[in-house]
């Protein structure tokens, strides 16, 4: 059993991280905490992809020297185990860019929200919005006067 866990420990780490992220996104009432949860969530996926590209035992980047390349014809086969698969890593570069962009947009939205409601607590925002909808002076703004 322990071996089963250890053999695929990257999976377990990713699952645990993902659950933490999900919990923060769903359970937390503070918007910044939600955003942090979202980041953890995205990171866990990046971790999964990156770890999928790993090979143990001295594998290296797949850059073939010219002599190696020439030796293919000389019937020296390139062993797959000697080289890492770079594609997942390259994909993750894009995914990281996407996730940073998302974070940026989310932060900008948070600033907008803060300017409008003066708070980042979801419950308080809901209360203010309810007041606005019923054409009352918002409760929170009232208390600050």
């Amino acid at each position: 059993m322990t071996e089963y866990f250890l053999a695929k420990y990257n999976f377990w780490i990713y699952v645990v991280l993902m659950m933490i992220g999900l919990y923060a996104m769903m359970g937390k009432r503070n918007l910044v905490k939600k955003l942090i949860g979202m980041n953890i969530f995205q990171t866990s996926i990046i971790l999964l992809f990156v770890s999928a590209g790993v090979k143990k035992g001295g594998a290296t980047v797949p850059i073939l020297r010219h002599s190696d390349y020439g030796s293919v014809h000389a019937e020296h086969l390139i062993r797959v185990a000697d080289y890492l698969n770079p594609l997942p890593h390259v994909l993750m570069l894009t995914a990281i860019v996407v996730s940073i962009a998302t974070t940026g947009v989310a932060l900008a939205t948070l600033i907008l929200i803060y300017k409008r409601y003066n708070t980042l607590e979801e419950d308080e925002i809901m209360a203010i919005r309810k007041d606005i909808r019923s054409y009352k002076t918002p409760r929170i703004l009232r208390s600050k006067d």
Binding site: L22, M25, K34, M38, T109
Partner: peptide, 13 residues
């Protein structure tokens, strides 16, 4: 903004 933020969170999931 609030709707957008919720959309961001759920959309990202």
């Amino acid at each position: 903004p609030m709707a957008t933020f919720n959309y961001i969170i759920i959309g990202t999931i």
